[in-house]
């Protein structure tokens, strides 16, 4: 692990303890306290949007409130008064939009279908045809188990897994990674909107935005050694991914601080938040700190102490990758 990064993280945590930055103290409280509110370019910004009343009876996410939360997050990220103005900054009519969700964790901890429905609604209002939107992950059955309705063909939002269309025949390679890419990415997506979840990962430390791209390739099992480092960063360097990636909307309505990636209800909490950013590295760093805080609340050791800190985040930010920023002093975290 990059030692300068460790130092940065420690400094950041000190700042957090002194009230300069992060974190949640319990249900319904701010995730990021006393956040610096100076204006920043959207690409340097991570918006953490929270709604303590997100859920209706039975703990189900309220569809109107999640739409409103998404709107607030997008308006804040793009400094716009109305949500559609923000979405129109993101996409243009005629573009094919892939919404890459994460459905490994079943209904317990997958991208929330109501959040995805809200995203698709706004995309259409911004001028994207329903049939030009595809909600996808690697496997159709996993999408269904997570609560998505599979749809192929017709003038409606498409939803299916790579298993329906296969991977490209040819390999693409960068650094340590050589893989075949999903045809949904290469042939059905001009724009990629990444909709991961916020959770612990027993090997990688955390799995949020960057690691969600493991669902794009045919051989993710080859890239789990060494805490997925440098594989996660190398994978995100592939031009087919990097040039399409425009936005990450991390679903932290339910999050998990231990025991991932499979759903462990005993280690999950209703975080009732969204993390939104154009910088997947900054978003991952911010999400990691939220998980660390929750671990501390539960008396768990830090991921670093457990020797599974997500070192791939620093790699993604290094001079060879430059996929984003992991320096908390440069990340503008906006809590709303």
């Amino acid at each position: 692990m990059n030692t300068s990064h460790i130092a940065s993280r420690r400094n950041f945590l000190k700042q957090a303890l002194s009230g300069a930055a992060v974190l949640s103290t319990g249900s319904g409280t701010k995730l990021l306290a006393d956040v610096e509110q100076r204006p920043a370019q959207a690409k340097l910004r991570v918006v953490v949007a929270h709604d303590a009343l997100l859920r209706s009876a039975g703990s189900t996410v309220d569809s109107q409130r999640i739409l409103a939360l998404l709107d607030r997050a997008m308006q804040s990220l793009y400094d716009r008064d109305r949500p559609l103005e923000a979405w129109r900054k993101l996409v243009r009519p005629g573009e094919l939009v892939g919404v890459k969700v994460n459905t490994l964790g079943g209904r317990g901890i997958s991208s929330n279908p109501q959040l995805v429905a809200a995203i698709c609604e706004r995309l259409q209002q911004a001028g994207i045809k329903a049939g030009d939107i595809v909600v996808w992950d690697r496997d159709t059955d996993e999408l269904e188990r997570a609560g998505f309705h599979v749809a192929e063909g017709g003038n409606r939002v498409q939803c299916y897994g790579t298993d329906r269309v296969d991977y490209e025949q040819d390999l693409v390679a960068y650094g340590s990674v050589g893989s075949r890419l999903s045809k949904i990415l290469t042939q059905r997506s001009d724009v990629l909107i990444n909709v991961p979840v916020l959770k612990d990962h027993d090997g990688a430390g955390v799995t949020i935005a960057l690691k969600n791209m493991y669902g794009v390739i045919h051989n993710p099992n080859k890239y789990h050694p060494n805490g997925c480092n440098p594989y996660v960063a190398d994978l995100n360097m592939l031009p087919e991914i990097r040039t399409r990636m425009r936005l990450t909307i991390c679903d932290a309505t339910t999050a998990m601080y231990e025991g991932g990636p499979a759903f462990k209800p005993e280690h999950s909490w209703e975080c009732n938040s969204l993390l939104v950013s154009q910088d997947p590295v900054a978003l991952d760093y911010t999400g990691w700190q939220i998980i660390e805080r929750k671990r501390a609340e539960h008396g768990l050791k830090t991921l670093e102490t457990e020797q599974r800190a997500p070192s791939y985040i620093a790699t993604a930010a290094d001079a060879q990758h430059r996929l984003g920023i992991n320096d908390p002093r440069k990340i503008s975290t906006v809590e709303i």
Partner: peptide
Amino acid sequence: PNRKIKCKLCPRECTVGDRERGYCG
């Protein structure tokens, strides 16, 4: 513990969490 396993087939000895696969895939 915690529904994990350790594979003893090859020297890699993958520790594999629930719903996950080893390196071999």
